[in-house]
């Protein structure tokens, strides 16, 4: 049954179900309570669970993330919201020096069941409110990094993130949050009851034989649209939605590339020293240097996200640029 709801409502529904079944789950952050989140992803929670369990904090990200550490050390499961992922610049210390490392530094004696819930992605907001940064978090050992691309996964991955005994950075895509389920060509049906989507399992959202297109988050939809258009031109594109960057489901990628021999990675994060390079390296390590007939990376070409939307479109992967990359690969083969 197709329900009339958007992605942020799916996230809020997941949090509501987790809070109802586990009294140790608390939500804290800026505007998460009274306002229900600037994107609506915590809407209604404070009314149901009270102002203590859904805490509106001052604009103090170091204190918010540090409090999450103390709450976790004290037996709670905090969901700490960082309104925009770009704001990690003011509080990375608690995230990568404490949240990511405390389990390791104690030889497993301490757990950090913390969700850093945050929003990334380009929607014309300029250089300081548009980044994805999943590659940054993925580089730092000890953090799981989750990037849902559709309503079904948004709800199921949040359930898994809250339930996880490991810290999870859950990066919503701002361009998807207010998109309605009916506008998705996949994952549009969201059950009302609780369910989980396992963290670390990629999803082949469209099977294909000629090219393996690996992507995630906000670029899955345009990748699917591009694959659809390529099909009518005789090229069969397999689209893989990673769903999480850490753990990276390299087995699913390798199984696909071993068949197609052609790999296109579409990543809304920065190009260099990140996810796309990592995937290519692991594929080569696994399949050998001759396994790939073609490899291509489409990502933000190491520039800050421009302010003007017309400029943003020039550097952020979109349907046109994905299609162009696929056409070039198809023509060259």
């Amino acid at each position: 049954m197709r329900r009339n709801l958007n992605v942020s409502q799916c996230v809020a529904e997941a949090l509501r179900l987790e809070m109802a079944r586990d009294p140790s789950v608390v939500v804290l952050g800026e505007d998460v309570g009274r306002h229900g989140g600037v994107f609506g992803a915590t809407r209604g929670l404070q009314k149901t669970f009270g102002a203590d369990r859904v805490l509106d904090t001052p604009i103090s990200e170091t204190a918010i993330t540090g409090m999450a550490v103390g709450l976790a050390l004290d037996g709670f499961r905090p969901v700490a919201e960082l309104m925009f992922v770009d704001f990690i610049g003011v509080c990375l210390d608690q995230v990568f020096n404490a949240i990511a490392k405390n389990h390791y530094m104690t030889g497993g004696r301490v757990r950090m069941p913390i969700v850093i819930k945050t929003a990334g992605g380009c929607i014309g907001s300029g250089a300081q409110h548009s980044q994805c940064l999943w590659g940054l978090f993925a580089h730092l050992p000890g953090l799981k990094v989750v990037t849902p691309s559709n309503p079904y996964d948004a709800k199921g991955l949040m359930a898994s993130a809250v339930e996880s005994d490991d810290p999870v950075v859950y990066i919503e895509h701002k361009g998807l949050l207010l998109t309605r389920a009916e506008d998705f060509t996949f994952g549009a049906d969201v059950p009302e009851e609780r369910y989980t989507v396992p963290i670390g399992a990629a999803c082949v959202v469209r099977p294909g034989d000629d090219v393996s297109l690996v992507t995630l988050s906000g670029t899955v939809l345009p990748s699917l649209a591009a694959a659809e258009q390529m099909a009518s031109r005789g090229t069969s594109v397999e689209v893989i939605d990673l769903r999480s960057v850490v753990p990276l489901d390299i087995a699913t990628i390798i199984a696909s590339v071993a068949r197609t021999g052609r790999l296109l990675i579409v990543d809304e994060d920065y190009l260099s020293f990140g996810l796309s390079g990592e995937i290519v390296t692991r594929v080569i390590e696994e399949l050998g240097p001759n396994a790939l007939r073609q490899v291509r990376r489409l990502a933000v070409p190491d520039v800050p996200i421009p302010g003007a939307l017309s400029l943003e479109r020039a550097v952020v992967p979109n349907l046109a640029s994905i299609l162009m990359a696929l056409e070039q690969m198809s023509n060259a083969s």
Binding site: L71, A72, L73, D74, Q94
Partner: peptide, 30 residues
């Protein structure tokens, strides 16, 4: 040094312990 049974922890980052203590205090309130 961490001893979760005694709620003792430490950090090597100057100033990073204070927000963690605030989290413990909030846990007590909850």
């Amino acid at each position: 040094l961490f001893d979760p049974s005694l709620k003792f922890s430490a950090t090597g980052i100057v100033g990073a312990g204070l927000p963690v203590a605030v989290g413990h205090a909030y846990a007590a309130r909850l």
